[in-house]
């Protein structure tokens, strides 16, 4: 009898292990279909609040760096403003185009760069108008895509994520390619699907294409480091240096494409007709 009891106790141990194990795998696979936003639940106000507290301590040590970054961005924006102020009417259409995007400033409360799949948590949420599928840009370039929102916080998929894929273009000739990250160096990304007739040189700049409707066109992505030609394939790859320093990410802007819903509705319409 005692042995039987022991046997059941032992089996209970294995059964409970299998049950909890299945639960972990389920959670894990759910989080891998990232745009289904299983992670919403984990971006709770509770953990967000604790992370924000931790980030606020670290803030004081980076004040100088942060203010430099913002000053640099200010300078760049001043330059742009000057350009738009002296624009003639025929180019005004471009200006009207860019008004479709709204920028919501936010602070990063948690960010990693050393994992295979990195996430950025920011201190703005649904209360501030953040929604899923909005882009995240840093003062120096792209940063991520919002995938989960709670009332006061939001989780974004970092560009440093093996599932992140972004449509980009070469700024010198507008040729399209795709940006991915292979999970090694947080400073370097890979550009795939470069047509063979292009031969990018080191130093060429890459910007967002605007085709994903998440990011406006022309946001800085990075510069080409090395170009790889692949024998017998129609498309080549290149490694690039990100313009954003993900390790120092502190202040970001959430980009809201005011026309996104309209564009998506239009695309759907075309599919069904």
């Amino acid at each position: 009898m005692r042995n039987l009891f022991r046997f059941f106790l032992k089996q209970n141990f294995v059964l409970l292990f299998m049950l909890l194990g299945a639960l972990s795998i389920w959670l894990l696979t759910k989080s891998h279909t990232y745009h289904r936003a299983a992670i919403v639940n984990t971006t709770s106000n509770f953990t967000g609040g604790i992370l924000a507290f931790g980030a606020s301590i670290g803030d004081y040590f980076r004040l100088k760096e942060t203010s430099n970054q913002l000053a640099e961005q200010n300078a760049r924006l001043q330059e742009k403003l000057y350009f738009y102020e002296h624009l003639n009417d025929s180019l005004l259409i471009e200006l009207v185009d860019s008004v479709g995007f709204e920028y919501i400033p936010a602070r990063v409360v948690s960010n990693t760069v050393h994992l295979r799949n990195n996430y950025i948590i920011i201190n703005k949420g649904s209360k501030h108008g953040i929604e899923k599928e909005m882009g995240l840009v840093s003062p120096s370039g792209i940063a991520g895509i919002v995938i989960g929102v709670s009332e006061n916080y939001a989780t974004a998929l970092s560009i440093l994520h093996t599932h992140a894929r972004l449509s980009i273009k070469f700024s010198k000739n507008n040729q399209l390619a795709n940006l991915v990250w292979h999970g090694k160096d947080f400073k370097k990304g890979i550009v795939e699907d470069i047509p063979t007739h292009l031969s990018p040189a080191p130093g060429d700049t890459l910007v967002t294409s605007g085709h994903s409707f998440i990011f406006p066109e022309g946001i800085m992505v990075g510069t080409v480091l090395e170009y790889f030609e692949q024998e017998g394939r129609g498309l080549n790859e290149a490694s690039i240096q990100f313009s954003t320093d993900f390790n120092k990410l502190k202040y970001v802007y959430v980009v809201n494409n005011r026309n996104q819903n309209e564009i998506e509705a239009l695309l759907k319409l075309n599919v069904y007709e």
Binding site: L9, K10, N12, F13, L16, F17, L20, G21, L23, S24, I25, W26, L27, L28, T29, K30, S31, A38, I39, N41, T42, T43, S44, T47, I50, L51, S110, T112, L115, N117, Y119, I121, G148, T155
Partner: peptide, 30 residues
């Protein structure tokens, strides 16, 4: 045994909540 499993899973899950990696640390720590 059951408490050991639950505490291991719980510890992993707590780390997961902060790292936005549901199930990852929970599974490994379990």
């Amino acid at each position: 045994g059951w408490l050991l499993l639950i505490l291991g899973f719980g510890m992993g899950l707590a780390v997961d909540l902060f790292m936005a990696t549901p199930g990852l640390h929970a599974g490994a720590t379990l």
